[in-house]
Simulated scan of single mutants.
Amino acid sequence: MVVRMGLLTRRPDVSPAEFSRHWREVHGPLAERLPGLRRYHQNHVVDDRQLAIDHARGPWSIDGISELWFDSEDQMTRALSSDEYKAVARDHQLFVGPTALITAVQNVVVPVDPSAGRLVKRMSILTRKPGLTPEQFKEEWWGFHAEAVSKFPNLMGYTQNLVTGRSSGLGQPASYEALPIDGMVELWFRSIADVEAAFRSQAANISQTHALNFIAEITTFLVETYEVVPAGMSQKSNS
């Protein structure tokens, strides 16, 4: 399975409240009709503080991160060529400005317990250190680093999204220089206090020291997630 993520910035003439409302109430129902769509989440940015991470932050300033899951890249390509997507693209222009698109494969290190209730979600954009290859980045991130972060206290979920493709808001392929994103982190906790405590723990000291070896920038956001199409709820016609 692959996930397509959109890093969304609202149009200057659209307020944060209008952006959030339109994305949920108008855009969401259009996007959930895409053929082959398995899951669809909207992550609305509510806080862009680093919150206890002592690491260089990138220049990203965004209002939301979309996640759309497909069985394969072929299924994703077919969805983006569909009539349903034309309506999505038209509506996108009404409330979203600059957009970066990435395709990723996921490594679920700590699955989220569906019975855990409402959780605080933190997402982070990662850029690898200059001189490292994508393969070296993956080896470090999916190896020692994944194990180190999995030991954080009060951690309720941890997923790594390794970027495999990049494109502009117009759907045209983008170079790494244009979109220097190597990974997207998803972490879940019960509260902001648990986030801050986790990143002040000994496990965090180990993981953050290791991060200095292969990550140049970590740009973090707290998000409020709306599961437009939850797991296992895709349309029968998409099966």
Results as ranks from 00 to 15, higher is better:
M1S: 12
V2G: 00
R4Y: 11
L7R: 14
R24W: 08
R24F: 04
V26S: 11
H27N: 01
N43W: 01
A52P: 01
D54I: 11
R57G: 04
G58R: 00
P59D: 10
S61W: 02
I62C: 06
G64K: 00
S66A: 14
Q75K: 08
M76Q: 13
R78I: 02
A79R: 00
D83Y: 10
A87S: 11
R90V: 13
F95A: 03
V96D: 03
T103Y: 13
V112T: 14
R118L: 06
L119E: 08
L119P: 10
V120I: 08
K121F: 05
M123A: 07
S124Q: 14
L126S: 10
L126T: 13
P134L: 11
G143W: 03
A146T: 11
A148D: 12
F152R: 01
P153D: 14
N161Q: 10
G165D: 13
Q172D: 15
Y176F: 15
P180A: 09
S191M: 09
S191W: 09
S191G: 11
D194H: 14
V195E: 01
E196P: 09
A198N: 06
Q202M: 12
A203M: 03
I206F: 15
A211V: 07
F214Q: 13
F214P: 08
E217K: 09
I218D: 08
F221H: 03
V223S: 02
Y226G: 12
Y226C: 12
E227K: 09
V229A: 10
V229Q: 05
V229G: 09
G232E: 07
